[in-house]
Amino acid sequence: MDPKTALVRIQDGASAGSLLLARLYQGARRVADEIGRKVLGPDFEERVATLEERYRVAPDPFGLETVTARRAATVCAFFHRLYFRTEVFGIENVPKGRVLLIANHSGQVPIDAAILGSAMFFDANPPRVTRAMVDKWIPTLPFVSAFFSRVGQVVGVPENARRLLEMEELLLAFPEGTRGIAKPFSRRYQLEEFGLGFMRIAIETATPIVPVAVIGAEEQYVSLGNLSWAARALDIPVFPLVPQLAVPGGQLPLPTKYRLHFGEPMRFHGDPDDDDAVIADKVWLVRQCIQHLLAKGLSERRGVFF
């Protein structure tokens, strides 16, 4: 075969190959788009537009930025709809305007916050941005700090909570804090002590509190306990002992089924600067309400994974 013919043949083969590749690529894109539509829902663009409109009118001083938030919502949609197949109950209980979501915190990694945020974006009408109060050491972490502020998360200090509620935002707080999220598996669905700060702010700003029970997060990472000496040595809040991390692929959370139970809004009155004992009584009511929602939800669920 002379070199010219060979070259032509190679070219033919190559073009046929590239054609095939292009077809495959287009097919894959169609499938991806299809899945995307299914996961994101038919009204995704509308929901994004609603929020874009809101934050164009009044720019957010906390750094919420809709382009990044949209991307984050796309990733969260996968976990929300496909991976954890979240079931949402009573989301219509969340009133319009300022509101404080109080939830149980669990699961070693704060996926519960992301799923609650997804539910408020994908399942609530109209969609809302969930502003979670994050730990004070988050801003010291590169990338995480920039990302969190762009998707609307704020440092958990009372001034920020007050300002956001006055801006009629939806705030999410986990009064159990690190104690809650780092619980070992043996204490799953048992609430830790609640902090009192959220109640003072709710009373001061006349904000309704919506108790939320998150079911399914406790089983995503099974923790056998906390290595307190390792946490101290590394200067981090907790060092959970999670055996599944040693298994290849076990770094991903187990695909448990998430169930979110939203309770009726609770309104509290009185003096926000009252004694701790008085405030603690009111906090106790919220805690009992979440405990009750948890018990009800757990008794109704058929299995952890389905």
Binding site: P61, K136, P139, V155, V157, E159, N160
Partner: peptide, 9 residues
């Protein structure tokens, strides 16, 4: 500071 409120009074 990392723990600053977003807007200081």
């Amino acid at each position: 500071r990392p723990d600053n409120p977003q807007l200081l009074g």
